[in-house]
Design a protein around this nucleic acid. Structure first.
Lengths: 221, 221
DNA sequence: CTCAGTTTGTAAGTTATTTCACATAATATA
DNA sequence: TATATTATGTGAAATAACTTACAAACTGAG
């Protein structure tokens, strides 16, 4: 069983996705799964799956496959799922609102607990059970609630300032929806989701696929 | 200049991000940029940047760097930006609504043109200039508008059915927000955005970073 | 124009990731 | 219990991605 510290990055990236599908299988009363079957579900080659799993010990049984519940429990431990992760949301615009309303409902360990917004028509209200404060209370409230994880949907121009404040308040993990690259404070982990680039990327890769298909057509003759 | 077909995947993944920052630089009247400066902005090593760029020819000049406008134009061509990409949105819930309202405003070539939703209080209305139809009109309207790209925010249970219908309507690129893995029709390119897994991943990687930091502390003594 | 100082583009070397392929071990059936 | 079958876990090979390091090319100051 490898230490979390020297787990290959590529593997680490896939764990949450594996976990999600294992939970789905469990919900559907599936008791056992072979790496080949799982491969079809998660779209990852079975050899890669087996190698990934093997980082956490010998989880399966030859000639049988993997016990879904056991796998699910193992990854839950790896992901530290039993711990409630209180999350602060910074920026309650259209996207922020969507996040609050959804609030990772299917994952009881993930919960947006407080939110912050500059727009004064929203501050000091409660949306979907989440209290919304002004930016001036950011540090205070985050410390008070001992929150270490945040989601930022604020515009690029403010993103850096917000990040510094979050760091000062003790946050060390931020999911950031602004495309601007940030000056990341020491010890902080930031993950970007840039929907525009994702879409652009999709279109680009799709064009490439189409080109490949045409290319293969030509090769055939 | 490499053909789009055999561009390395890792490079292809970075192009839209490069493009986005080049546009920002252009907006800020920056005329030239060195790979080392750009590296600080996009958080990619300068050697990787140079290698990536070199896939598209010799774009820079020794002792000078890269001309921002020229780069931007080059990548615009690569990404086929001049073409207006009309996009269909399937599922106008909280997230869908946020997407419509934002509608990639800063990228005039990307535009959600029509949307579809089962909820009848929304069908046959217009939101932020985007007409919303019932699901029964999906094929017809998509064909009529010659749309080949779609964003799907429908729940897992319906995602597969929607995908088949989209394929039948001629769509070959889909950005999918449902976590369910799909049976991807021949010739279709699907990209997943799973916000829950992203968040879970962030927390996991952050924990790993924290563990590494502690580990380094110990090593020092 | 000259030349010291830059910065590119890439060959070669390194590291990371994926894939193959199979010995090993457990299953399942009779 | 015996045995044909199945599927894991993992060396070893292959591929992909990244990094180093530097010759060659260009700049810009004098």
């Amino acid at each position: 069983m490898k230490n979390i510290i020297d787990l290959p990055n590529a593997t680490a990236e896939r764990i949450p996705m594996y976990y999600r599908y294992l939970k789905m299988l469990e919900e559907n009363q599936v008791q056992r799964i072979k790496s080949q079957e799982f491969s079809k579900i998660v779209h990852v080659p079975s050899a890669t799956i087996r190698r990934d799993f093997s980082c956490f010990g010998e989880l399966g049984r030859s000639g049988y496959g993997y016990d879904v519940v056991f796998l699910e429990k193992t990854f839950a431990k790896v992901l530290n799922i039993e711990r409630l992760e209180k999350i602060a949301l910074i920026g309650v615009g259209n996207l922020g609102l969507a996040l609050i309303k959804n609030n990772f409902r299917r994952n009881p360990n993930l919960q947006i607990t407080i939110a912050f917004e500059v727009n004064e028509t929203l501050t000091d209200t409660i949306v979907s059970g989440v209290p919304i404060y002004g930016m001036d209370l950011l540090k205070e409230k985050i410390k008070e609630n001992e929150i270490t994880t945040a989601i930022s949907t604020v515009p690029s121009s403010d993103a850096n300032q917000v990040l510094q404040n979050l760091a000062a308040a003790g946050v060390h993990a931020v999911l950031n929806f602004a495309p601007e690259r940030l000056d990341i404070p020491e010890g902080m982990t930031v993950r970007y989701i840039d929907l525009t680039s994702e879409l652009q990327n999709l279109i680009y890769l799709s064009n490439r696929n189409q080109a490949r298909i045409e290319n293969d057509m030509v090769d055939q003759f």
